[in-house]
Design a binder for these strands. Sequence first.
DNA 1: CGGCATGTTGCGCA
DNA 2: TTGCGCAACATGCC
Length: 284
Amino acid sequence: MPELPEVEVVRRELAKLRGGTIVRFESNDARIVDQRIDVVGRVVREVGRRGKWLRIALDRRTRSAERGASGGDSRGHRGAEPLDRGTVLVFSHLGMTGDWSLHAPDEPALRFERVRIDVRRARRITSARYTDARRFGRLVTSATDIDAWRELGPDPLLEGIDERHLLEVMQKRRRTVKEVLMDQSLLAGVGNILAIEALFAARIDPRSPSRSITARDVHAIASALRTIIRRTIAHDEALLEGRRSRSPFRIYGRAKSPCPRCGAALRQVVLGGRTTTFCASCQR
DNA sequence: CGGCATGTTGCGCA
DNA sequence: TTGCGCAACATGCC
């Protein structure tokens, strides 16, 4: 499930819980869950995402306290109060096979279910279930942002892609262009598939040394990324809503098939330990 | 049975 | 110190 578009679709789903109060939290798996703070009784204020990480902000405000606060003057003094004392953050990374989905509270545990968080909103309880077959995912509660979150680079959807900065880093590193693209501290959320597809759309050979990348290349990559991210989100949302939708991926997983653009056989190599599909004849 | 998998981390070595 | 390559993690699926 896990590159930027998939995680964004999960975020939008979990955002339906905003305003609700957590009434139950359960997990069996200490490998995935690092729970340092109790979250039961807290209110879901905001569901955010940066790259492949989700961040759910909880506060301790109850309904009556909220009414009291808005009537008082504490807000005026504190402005937007992004992370006041008492806020608890839940970080979730989906690893390779993680996913969140919303269910009725009486629904039996799903296959591979590792965590459940039940949220009450207006007398209705929604049960958010986290499933993860391979258990590479993580769920951490913390009072402050965790290192993994702080170390993420700009998110292409939230902050856009800074082409000048991207070019600068490409010039500096001694890696292939694909490996640099997948560096989460440079650009958060670009995984193996997005990198493969963006380089194909930009007609750039993924094996190219990043130092050989030009401003024009960076521009092509950036606009390809924007397009693929947008299409993949639309695709994933369609599937979630039960609509039919054709996969936006053109070459991922299709080594040996003919290139959809020029017909040459697609090739496969390993870069940075990751399988990489490309067309040697139309990607330079 | 063998091989592969949308991710991250940590270790050994240059 | 830095950076690279690669194994490891745990399990399902083709």
